[in-house]
């Protein structure tokens, strides 16, 4: 059985589990919706509509939603004692990392679409370059999960895990968050070259961290 096939199997299994028990998606979507609402209330609608501010808060919310969804995904494995079985399979560790990243990216895409629509409607944002925005969001959604999955694996079964994962993940995610925010802001304000440059950087981060994850995460899973 090839590695991509095993990864697709784990991702499919994750998505089926998410469909049956969608608490991770629901929590992430609710979280991003609450943050979009809070943003307008706290900073005021005129500031919240600024493309830089709206983009930054959207991606920060999505980063936290990624952490939330990833932790929930691993909690489900631990509650069902399913992790040991999966890890024991030949190539199970690679497949676990790849499958989690793939399924989380899919879940996050849904969360990003809901959060994005809410932001656009509630903040009355104008999108100058919709296709560019789509590319940035797609690549941003691919760039976030690899790091978060690695950090959740590192903090697995540790006390204070809920506090530790954001402390480990957010500083490492800074370049991705900056690129995603700048790229989104550029797409909203009509800067095509800027949007594509930042999208390129997001693609590079997604590839680099996925390769690092596939290389070293198997060593970190006990």
């Amino acid at each position: 059985m090839s590695v991509p096939y095993r990864i697709a199997l784990v991702a499919g299994r994750e998505l089926r589990a998410e469909r049956r028990q969608p608490d991770g998606v629901v929590a992430a979507v609710t979280f991003i919706a609450v943050l979009v609402l809070l943003e307008s209330l706290v900073v005021g609608p005129s500031i919240a509509r600024d493309t830089d501010v709206a983009s930054a808060l959207f991606w920060l919310a999505l980063a936290f939603a990624t952490i939330l969804a990833t932790m929930r995904s691993f909690d489900r494995e631990l509650e069902d004692d399913a992790l040991e079985g999966l890890v024991a399979l030949p190539g199970g560790r690679d497949a676990l990392f790849g499958g989690k990243v793939l399924s989380l990216a899919t879940v996050l895409l849904l969360v990003a679409v809901v959060g994005g629509i809410l932001s656009i409607v509630l903040l009355d944002l104008r999108i100058a370059l919709p296709l560019h925005l789509l590319v940035v969001v797609l690549l941003g959604v691919l760039a976030l999960p690899p790091i978060v999955v690695v950090d959740v694996v590192l903090a697995l079964r540790l006390r204070a895990r809920a506090a530790l994962v954001p402390i480990l993940a957010l500083p490492v995610l800074v370049p991705q968050l900056v690129a995603a925010t700048r790229g989104t802001s550029a797409a909203l304000s009509g800067d095509a070259v800027g949007a594509l440059s930042w999208a390129g950087l997001l693609f590079a981060f997604a590839v680099v961290y996925t390769v690092i994850g596939l290389t070293i995460v198997p060593a970190a899973i006990e």
Binding site: V150, L154, A155, Y209, I216, A219
Partner: peptide, 10 residues
Amino acid sequence: TRAAVFGIIA
């Protein structure tokens, strides 16, 4: 092991 993985990423 956990620290080593994070040390490589950081």
